[in-house]
Design a protein around this nucleic acid. Structure first.
Lengths: 125, 125
DNA sequence: CTAAAATCTGACGTTGACGTGAGAGGCAAG
DNA sequence: CTTGCCTCTCACGTCAACGTCAGATTTTAG
């Protein structure tokens, strides 16, 4: 498949796909005319990349992790890398949970009828 | 207290504090010479701001939320805003959890002795 | 074969939360 | 008064993950 179809299948932009290749996260064969050709499973790889990006990992980090995920490399160092990133994600989740709790507390108190309804607009109701 | 001490207490840079003020997330009184003066509870506010930033919220969003958190405003619209942001955080946590699961699966399989240890270096051990 | 659509390679633009000087002024100590 | 540290206000620099525009080429449809 060509880049447009891969983009359509994965929901990421053509520009992003080229960027991934530039970052060496994704490879492609070229047609005689120089156009990128992807195998079907490229979509899976793109989804994986997206997942890792969504986890807040950088291109560099993903580049380091991909060989491990591909199981092409399995050394103590690579396992340590994987654990480190997993732990980083855990930490991030904790941060988010903390903020969520904070907001939730505010919400709960603001919705409680006993709360200090300083500025509630119930006038015309 | 002055800006340097607030920075030291909260662990954020002086530059960041000025930036917060520029974004109207933080206010200060001024000495006769033009230097910022903060009350003691400014540290709490900075921590709150940090928490919300850590949750991935933008300055603009935080600016919108702060009056709600301060309980100065409590309208249906403000409560909707709070809930929207909380839900956004929940969604983010889900994304992170997905990535975490992905990595964890890779880790588990790579640590299992039955795994395809394509390239394990146990040579000189 | 031709027009339209897709793709190519640069290369500059964008956004947010600050970093990093530059140059000038404020402030407690000796 | 002056030394030295803190603070002030511009204002440009940064970094990442793309967006976007330009001009040229390739591929597809008819």
């Amino acid at each position: 498949m060509r880049i447009g179809e891969l983009a359509a299948r994965t929901g990421v932009s053509v520009r992003a796909l080229r960027y991934y290749e530039e970052q060496q996260l994704l490879t492609s064969l070229r047609s005689s005319g120089g156009q990128r050709q992807y195998p079907d499973d490229a979509a899976d790889r793109v989804h994986l990349i997206q997942t890792l990006y969504a986890a807040g990992l950088s291109s560099k980090t993903i580049l380091d992790l991909l060989p491990c995920v591909d199981a092409k490399v399995n050394t103590p160092a690579s396992r340590a890398l994987l654990r480190a990133e997993r732990d980083r994600i855990d930490q991030r989740i904790s941060e988010l949970a903390a903020a969520r709790e904070r907001l939730d507390a505010v919400i709960t108190s603001s919705e409680s009828p006993a709360s200090g309804c300083t500025h509630v607009d119930l006038a015309s109701a």
